[in-house]
């Protein structure tokens, strides 16, 4: 009797797991098929792109498309540009958001609640409302045609990340702070030597998402550095490929797009575990 029950349960468990795998596969297909289609198109020669019936696996593997994409979009130089901007944004974002998050989470200063609500409500503002006045500001300051408008905002604590920091830091027990204070640490030392090492997942998450935000940004480079080709970011360079007067070379365009998101993919893979932990900071718990 017991044996029957055990094998019965085992069979149910196995079917449950198999069913789970099947469902995962089924839902995964629409996730990756378009990306595979992108890869397939990137490898085709010109005739194959719109061939009917469509070739899922290209008849000709034209790896040269990638080389062509690198040349046409001036990939290497713009990769350097975009990387430079992204790194500076990451540093700035982490430093400023931790500072402000720490202040909101720890210090009881006058107006703390008010500032918190102001920061939250600024997340609600449609981007369009602020574009023109901010543009005029940068022109007046002489920063048009530079990367400053792309970098400086990250150093001034964007609301979403500030919110995240505050939530996360609220969960760190105050006893750490107090112990350090007794030992004579300044607030700044508490932040840098105790809080930050404890917040590695949050740092990783913010680094990855800031990197993503900066890498994918199209509108701001469009507004500020469009006139100086040597300052273009990858987003501009890739978009240029898709807007010729003489028709679009879809295969080269797709190849360029793939090269465009490959770095983010790599970064994400490397920091995946930390990223998941950091996401967990939204609920003040970890992710297994």
């Amino acid at each position: 009797m017991k044996n029957e029950m055990r094998t019965g349960r085992k069979r149910r468990e196995i079917t449950a797991i198999v069913l789970r795998y099947v469902m995962i596969f089924v839902f995964m297909l629409p996730m990756i098929l378009p990306v595979l289609w992108m890869l397939s198109t990137a490898l085709k020669d010109n005739a194959g792109v719109f061939a009917t019936p469509p070739q899922f696996i290209p008849k000709v593997f034209q790896w040269g498309n990638f080389k062509e994409a690198v040349i046409q979009s001036k990939y290497l130089q713009r990769f350097g540009n975009t990387l430079f901007i992204a790194v500076l944004c990451i540093i700035g974002s982490i430093l400023s958001n931790f500072m402000v998050g720490y202040a909101l989470a720890r210090f009881k200063f006058k107006g703390r609640k008010m500032w918190f609500y102001l920061i939250i409500s600024s997340m609600m503002i449609p981007g369009m409302t602020t574009v023109m006045p901010v543009f005029r500001f940068w022109v007046a300051v002489g920063a048009y045609g530079t990367w400053l408008p792309l970098i400086l905002p990250a150093w001034l604590a964007g609301p979403f990340n500030t919110f995240l920091c505050k939530q996360f830091l609220s969960t760190i027990p105050r006893s750490y702070d107090e112990a350090a204070k007794i030992d004579g640490a300044t607030y700044f030392q508490i932040l840098s030597r105790i809080i930050m090492p404890l917040s590695k997942p949050l740092i990783a998450y913010m680094a990855v998402s800031t990197f993503q935000g900066s890498w994918n940004d199209y509108m701001n480079p469009l507004l500020y550095v469009i006139s100086k080709q040597d300052k273009w970011t990858l987003a501009l360079g890739i978009a240029r490929l898709g807007s010729g007067t003489f028709g679009i070379e879809w295969n080269v365009y797709m190849a360029a797009d793939i090269l465009y998101f490959l770095p983010i993919l790599v970064v994400f893979f490397i920091f995946q575990d930390y990223f998941m932990e950091g996401l967990g900071s939204m609920t003040a718990a970890g992710v297994k």
Binding site: M99, F107, K108, F109, W115, S122, L156, A157
Partner: peptide, 14 residues
């Protein structure tokens, strides 16, 4: 005081 010092990024940015 410390609260406001650490809030400088937002005090400028907002």
């Amino acid at each position: 005081f410390h609260g406001y010092i650490f809030m400088i990024p937002t005090l400028i940015g907002w």
